[in-house]
Each structure stands twice: as structure tokens, then as C-alpha cells.
Design a protein around this nucleic acid. Structure first.
Lengths: 245, 245
DNA sequence: AATCGTCCTATTGTCCGACAATCCGATAAT
DNA sequence: ATTATCGGATTGTCGGACAATAGGACGATT
């Protein structure tokens, strides 16, 4: 009664193709920027049919490991945090994240991250963030889409400024949730624009002077504004954030 | 010179298939647990060839949105945090995460998360975590693989106990990095087992009594041990964490 | 010289038809 | 009740095929 066997795994060929390609990319046999052989050549080399190759390649496509190049050939590419984040946030939206949960995640990570950014931000990123805020302050209060776009980019810069890929992917995922939330509340929060600009200016000041304390403080306020915006706009905090990719 | 046009996007049919299926899953037309029609039927309904359907389905497969059921038909499934985390951590490992960066991410998120867990952990999760620690303390100091396994499960429980999917996926990704790191240092840190058990027992005490302060404190110590372990084991803190899925 | 047609080639996206392997359920045999 | 056998359904894989498109070469036009 104690005899147990491992369930045998039958790996389809298209999976093998996917794994073989991924392995070659991982160990540098195929390096970033290189173009893959044509599907016909791959089929010949792997000894499988072109249809099988195509199915295997689809698995890599979704992960962002390869993209279609200009000449329509597959090109090995660096997986960007944005790719991973996109998959992640879609999965989150599907599994049902409430605004409250997204906000909690933001409030756990972002103030601390702001402290890190104040230690290590470089001039280039800093000036880019300044530009975003300058653009924001030129907007009218009813240009919601443009504002969302700029805020999204501001937070992308912020995530990149942490200079830590492990944190960056998490933050990029949350940024997408944040963006969706923001879009939802802008209609009902008249003075959102000024509050956003004020907080972000203060953040940039703290970053550029290396003031971790104020960076954390203002990020906490900035995130807090988001929550207050939800209340002011009269949106239930248990509202699900939906996927609008 | 200012005339600009949108680049036209030519969406291949297999992408449309993927999106259509994802949409139907998202809006509940296809609910969790339901089996998809056969490939032939899908091909008929979409008006495309079965090969095209198969390519589209591959895109969904990688995301964990559907799995092969017992009868080999596709079954719509809940995307688990572990699925997302697996993709994420593989991407991270590929793009090159140092131990230092993983540790920094842990130290940003986990103490705060521990505070949240102390507020809201349920008895079932708590007893499961207790069991893990009890099992750990029965191990000999040289049973590295078993210890890694138990620690990994402890942290999975921890991530789930936060009861926030947005944080959970990030934490599960970090757990995989943590596990890889732990495996690397156990050989060179003789008293790792006792330190781990001590910290985790203290954490469980804090969780069960709702003591947020101590939860944060002990998690900070626990994570700190990991870093010290790296130093004791003589591993360079800039070492890349590799993908060993 | 720079731009615009035109042709050719390579490659992808898509389709069709086909078959072996496997799984499921039912039925028959022990 | 368990085991063997059978038939249908479905997937994994194959081979071949074709239209559409990107890219390059080569003139023709301004």
C-alpha cells in the first residue's frame, strides 16, 4: 500500500521548443538583439514541423522575451519591467483587486521606496521627473487623460529610480493599478491636479536634496491623497479595479 | 511638417483569438472551472483554422489562465499568485538581480507586511505556519533541501496571510528569490537552522497575539539574518541570483 | 540627387487535410 | 468486482500550400 510512483510527464514538442529557446537565450547562446533563425530553419534544426515551432514561439512571445523585429523576424529582447508588470496587473485585475487592496500595497511599498530614491536618484531621471510635473501644471483641470498619462510616467520614473529590478517590477504592476484608480476618480475630485502637482514637486525637492525623511513623508501624503480622492469622488473603497489594457 | 498619423496596427488572427477568449473569461462568459470547447469547435466559431486557434491558446497557456484538464480539454482556471510569481522571478533572474537587490526588496516590504499579518491572520493559516516551524525544528542541521522547502512554504503562507493579492504576487516573486538565496548560503552557515526557527517562532507569537510592533521587529531580524548569512558564508553580496526553476 | 514606381525574394500568417497517440466511456469477459 | 477490449473524441504533430507583406535592387521621373 506504500508503493508510490512519480506521475510521468509527457512533454509536448512545442514545450520543448520553448524551453530550448529560452535556455539558449538565458545562457547567452542567443544574446539580446540577435534575430532568431526563420521558422523554417528552426523547424529543420529542431526536427519538428513549422507549426510546432510556431506554437512554441507563442509561449515565449507572451513573456516578452522575444518580439517581432522590423523585418518580421523574431528578435531576442531584454524583458522589460513593464512587460512583466503588464502580465501581473492583468492577472491581478482578473483575480479581483479592490481599490483598498491596491492602496494598501502602495502605502506599504512607496514611502520606503521614496526613501531609497532620495539616496540614489541620478540627475537625468530627476530632470525627467521635473519635466513631467512642469507639464502637469500647464494642464487644465479637465484634461484628465493627459494628466493620467503624465502621472503614470512620473511613477514609472519613480519605479526606475529605485534602481532595483526586484522592486521595480512590483512597483510597475502597482502603477498600472494606480493609473486605473486615478482615472476613475478624477471626474469627481476638482482640485486633484493642484494636490498632485504640489506633492510631486515636494517629492522632487526631497529627492534632489537626498532628504529621505521628507521623501517618505510626501509620498505618504501623495498616496493618502489618492485614498481621499476616492472618498471625495464617492467611490466605494471596495470597488474592483478593472483591467483596461 | 506637423502632420502625424497613428501607426496602423495589424493584429494577427491568433492574437484576436487570444483576446476574445481572455475577454470572455474576464467578463464571466466563461467562468472558472468551465471547460473550453474543443479546438475544432473554437475554430468553427471564430471562423479560423484550428492551427490559428492553437496559436492563440498558447498565449493564454503561459499566463496560467487555462490549463489542460484531465480529459485533455482546456479548463479555465484561477490565476494563482504562484503562476504570476514564477514568470516574474524568471524574468528577474534573467535580467540579473543581485542578492543585495533582492534583500533590499525584502527589507522594504516584509516588515510592513508582517505588521499587516499580525492584524488579520486567521487560525488556519496560523496553525499551518506553526506546523512548518515544528517540522523545521525536527530537522538536522545538514538537511538543507528539506529546510529550504519548509522555509519556502512558511513564506508562502506569510504572503497569503497578508490577504492582499496585489502584495501577494510581489511577495511570492521575492519568495522565489529568497529561496534561491537561502539554498546558496546554507552550506556555509552552521547555525542557520536555529536562528531561522527562533525568528519564525517569535513571528508566529507576534502574529497570534496581534502584536504588530514585534511582528515588524522580528521580520526585520529574520531578513537581517539572511544578509548576515551571506556574509558568514563568504558569498559576495553582488552575486546574481540565478534561475533554478 | 532625391523621390517614386516596379519587380523579385524571403518570410510570416493562415489554411487544409491527415494521422498516431491518448483519453473516455461503454461493453464484454474473466 | 475487476480486467480486457473496443470505438469515438480530442489533441499533438505533420506535410504541403498560398496570399500578404517587408525589404532590397533597379530603373524612371522630377
Amino acid at each position: 500500500m506504500s508503493y508510490r510512483v512519480e506521475p510521468i510527464v509527457r512533454e509536448p514538442a512545442y514545450l520543448k521548443v520553448c524551453q530550448a529557446l529560452e535556455q539558449d537565450i538565458l545562457d547567452g547562446t542567443l544574446s539580446i538583439g540577435e534575430t532568431l533563425p526563420t521558422e523554417t530553419m528552426l523547424a529543420d534544426q529542431f526536427g519538428v514541423n513549422r507549426s510546432t515551432v510556431r506554437e512554441g514561439v507563442r509561449l515565449l512571445e507572451q513573456t516578452g522575451l522575444i518580439v517581432r523585429g522590423a523585418a518580421k523576424r523574431w528578435v531576442v529582447t531584454q524583458v522589460e519591467a513593464a512587460d512583466v508588470a503588464n502580465n501581473t496587473s492583468r492577472a491581478l485585475a482578473r483575480s479581483g483587486v479592490t481599490f483598498m487592496q491596491a492602496w494598501e500595497a502602495l502605502s506599504v511599498i512607496y514611502p520606503q521606496a521614496a526613501g531609497l530614491v532620495a539616496q540614489r536618484i541620478d540627475d537625468q531621471t530627476l530632470s525627467r521627473m521635473k519635466q513631467r510635473v512642469a507639464d502637469e501644471s500647464k494642464l487644465n483641470a479637465d484634461q484628465h487623460d493627459a494628466l493620467v498619462e503624465l502621472v503614470s510616467e512620473f511613477f514609472s520614473d519613480f519605479a526606475a529610480a529605485v534602481d532595483n529590478p526586484a522592486l521595480e517590477v512590483s512597483m510597475e504592476s502597482l502603477n498600472l493599478l494606480l493609473t486605473s484608480s486615478l482615472r476613475l476618480i478624477l471626474g469627481g475630485t476638482p482640485n486633484a491636479l493642484t494636490r498632485i502637482v504640489t506633492a510631486q514637486k515636494a517629492l522632487i525637492d526631497a529627492f534632489s536634496s537626498g532628504d529621505q525623511e521628507n521623501a517618505r513623508l510626501w509620498m505618504t501624503r501623495h498616496i493618502g491623497d489618492l485614498r481621499r480622492g476616492y472618498e471625495v469622488a464617492g467611490v466605494d473603497i471596495r470597488t474592483l479595479i478593472v483591467d483596461n489594457a
